[in-house]
Simulated assay, not measured.
Amino acid sequence: MGSPSDLGGVRIEHFEYVPCRVPEWRVRWEEPVDLDTPPEIPVDAQWKLFPTD
């Protein structure tokens, strides 16, 4: 499950994994029109945000 984080980005939680926080560009809230199109990745993108809490 993902939800907006107070620290920015999106906090992802699942009982089988360690919680993490990711930038908003990594999350799609709606299904894309073309599932074969890759996501747009910003130049020098961060993949995980720290701290997580």
Score class of each variant (00 low, 15 high):
Met1Phe: 10
Met1Glu: 15
Met1Arg: 12
Met1Asp: 15
Gly2Thr: 06
Gly2Ser: 12
Gly2Trp: 11
Gly2Asn: 05
Gly2Tyr: 07
Gly2His: 10
Ser3Met: 15
Ser3Ala: 14
Ser3Ile: 14
Pro4Arg: 06
Pro4Ala: 07
Ser5Arg: 06
Ser5Gln: 05
Asp6Glu: 15
Asp6His: 15
Asp6Val: 14
Asp6Arg: 14
Asp6Gly: 13
Leu7Tyr: 09
Leu7Lys: 14
Leu7Val: 10
Leu7Trp: 04
Gly9Thr: 01
Gly9Asp: 06
Gly9Glu: 04
Val10Thr: 15
Val10Pro: 08
Val10Lys: 00
Arg11Val: 13
Arg11Cys: 06
Arg11Met: 11
Arg11Asn: 10
Arg11Leu: 08
Ile12Met: 13
Ile12Leu: 12
Ile12Gln: 07
Ile12Thr: 09
Glu13Asn: 08
Glu13Asp: 14
Glu13Trp: 12
Glu13Leu: 10
Glu13Ser: 10
Glu13Val: 13
Glu13Lys: 12
His14Asp: 15
His14Ala: 12
His14Lys: 13
Phe15Cys: 12
Glu16His: 14
Glu16Asp: 15
Glu16Arg: 12
Glu16Thr: 14
Glu16Ile: 13
Tyr17Met: 10
Tyr17Ala: 09
Tyr17Thr: 12
Val18Phe: 13
Val18Lys: 13
Pro19Leu: 01
Pro19Thr: 02
Cys20Lys: 04
Cys20Pro: 00
Cys20Glu: 03
Arg21Ile: 06
Arg21Glu: 04
Val22Met: 01
Val22Gln: 00
Val22Pro: 03
Val22His: 04
Pro23Leu: 01
Pro23Tyr: 01
Glu24Lys: 14
Glu24Val: 10
Glu24Ala: 12
Glu24Phe: 03
Trp25Lys: 05
Arg26Leu: 11
Arg26Glu: 04
Val27Tyr: 02
Trp29Tyr: 08
Trp29Leu: 12
Trp29Gln: 06
Trp29Asp: 03
Trp29Ile: 09
Trp29Met: 04
Trp29Ala: 04
Glu30Ile: 05
Glu30Ser: 11
Glu31Gln: 08
Glu31His: 08
Pro32Trp: 00
Pro32Arg: 02
Pro32Asn: 01
Pro32Thr: 01
Pro32Glu: 00
Val33Leu: 09
Val33Pro: 03
Asp34Glu: 00
Asp34Val: 02
Leu35Ile: 09
Leu35Asn: 05
Leu35Ala: 07
Leu35Tyr: 01
Thr37Met: 07
Thr37Gly: 02
Thr37Cys: 07
Thr37Val: 07
Pro38Gln: 02
Pro38Trp: 05
Pro38Arg: 09
Pro39Met: 02
Pro39Phe: 00
Pro39Gly: 00
Pro39Cys: 00
Glu40Leu: 07
Glu40Pro: 05
Glu40Gly: 05
Glu40Cys: 03
Ile41Asp: 06
Ile41Asn: 07
Ile41Gly: 10
Pro42Phe: 03
Pro42Cys: 00
Asp44Pro: 03
Asp44Tyr: 04
Asp44Asn: 13
Asp44Cys: 09
Asp44Glu: 09
Asp44Ala: 06
Gln46Pro: 02
Trp47Leu: 14
Trp47Asp: 11
Trp47Gly: 08
Trp47Gln: 11
Trp47Ala: 04
Lys48Ile: 14
Leu49Glu: 03
Leu49His: 05
Phe50Gly: 06
Phe50Glu: 12
Phe50Ala: 10
Phe50Met: 09
Pro51Ser: 03
Thr52Arg: 13
Thr52Phe: 10
Asp53Gln: 14
Asp53Ile: 11
Asp53Ser: 11
